[in-house]
């Protein structure tokens, strides 16, 4: 074959077509990485000393000690679980009217604006930051945690619920409306059946998230298993810490499986 076919082929660039830009971006990335790595000051002797502690933690994880701190662990767990359930119930209950109000297709403009800004505030702030404020206002303990999680639930559920309502089939709402139904009847007959399964699914999902978060906000004093974990770690009791982490992982796994089962069952 002496036909004039090329003997070289290189893959044409897919995203950035201009060669100069490509080089600039690549060089930029390398410079950034060098600079970023430069900011990481590592105290190697401290890390080296830490290895032994790390080993103890891994051992603690493999041979967890549930028994010696069981009272603290069970107290923390009860606080976390009750906090999770109550905050999810209250959060969802508040989310439903806000979610309906934040749906552009069924709410008047002024209500829509108010509800959307509540959602935005709730979503913008991290749970832990809200917890700091609420602990400062309401004092230490699970009540502040409950308020934090309820508030965070509102941002999550109301946003997704509102988006769902905005995506319902307009034809069904139209049909109900054309029968002369009132606003409440439209919501009840046209909107509710379409979004109800999703709402239940989202609530279960949020229950799972709230439990995970309840393990965190304890660090800033909002009660729950997080507080117990914080204490265990600061006392260097890695076997108790390992036990707590395994309990958290176990509960999350159970929650995930049972909620996917429950969702299948409800649909």
């Amino acid at each position: 074959m002496s036909a004039p076919y090329p003997t070289r082929w290189t893959r044409p660039p897919q995203i950035i077509k201009d060669r100069r830009w490509r080089i600039a971006v690549q060089v930029g990335i390398v410079i950034y990485l060098v600079l970023a790595m430069g900011t990481v000051e590592v105290n190697w002797t401290r890390v080296y000393e830490g290895l032994e502690r790390g080993q103890r933690f891994v051992m603690g994880f493999l041979q967890p000690d549930f028994a010696s701190r069981w009272r603290d662990i069970s107290n923390g767990l009860v606080e976390s679980l009750t906090m999770t359930l109550t905050s999810t119930v209250v959060g969802v209950a508040i989310s439903v009217p806000i979610g309906i109000g934040a749906a552009r297709n069924i709410a008047p403009v002024w209500i829509y604006r108010i509800c959307r800004s509540i959602i935005a505030v709730s979503r913008a702030l991290q749970e832990i930051i809200i917890a700091i404020f609420l602990v400062a206002m309401f004092g230490f303990g699970p009540f502040a945690g409950f308020l934090t999680l309820s508030f965070a639930t509102i941002g999550f559920i109301a946003k997704l619920l509102a988006d769902d309502i905005e995506e319902i089939e307009e034809a069904q709402a139209e049909a109900i409306r054309s029968t002369g139904a009132s606003w409440w009847q439209v919501v009840n007959y046209a909107v509710q059946p379409q979004v109800m399964p999703r709402l239940i699914g989202l609530s279960l999902y949020r229950l799972d998230i709230n439990f995970r978060e309840s393990a965190v906000i304890g660090i800033v004093g909002a009660g729950g298993i997080g507080a117990t974990l914080n204490t265990a770690i600061s006392r260097y009791e890695y076997d108790s810490a390992g036990a707590i982490l395994l309990i958290i992982i176990g509960i999350v796994m159970v929650a995930e499986y049972s909620s996917s089962y429950l969702r299948k069952f409800l649909q």
Binding site: I128, R212, E213, A215, V216, I219, G226, L229, N230, I233, L245, I248, I249, V252, M253
Partner: peptide, 9 residues
């Protein structure tokens, strides 16, 4: 299941 904050702790 374990939040970044707990890992950091």
């Amino acid at each position: 299941s374990i939040n970044a904050l707990i890992w950091a702790l």
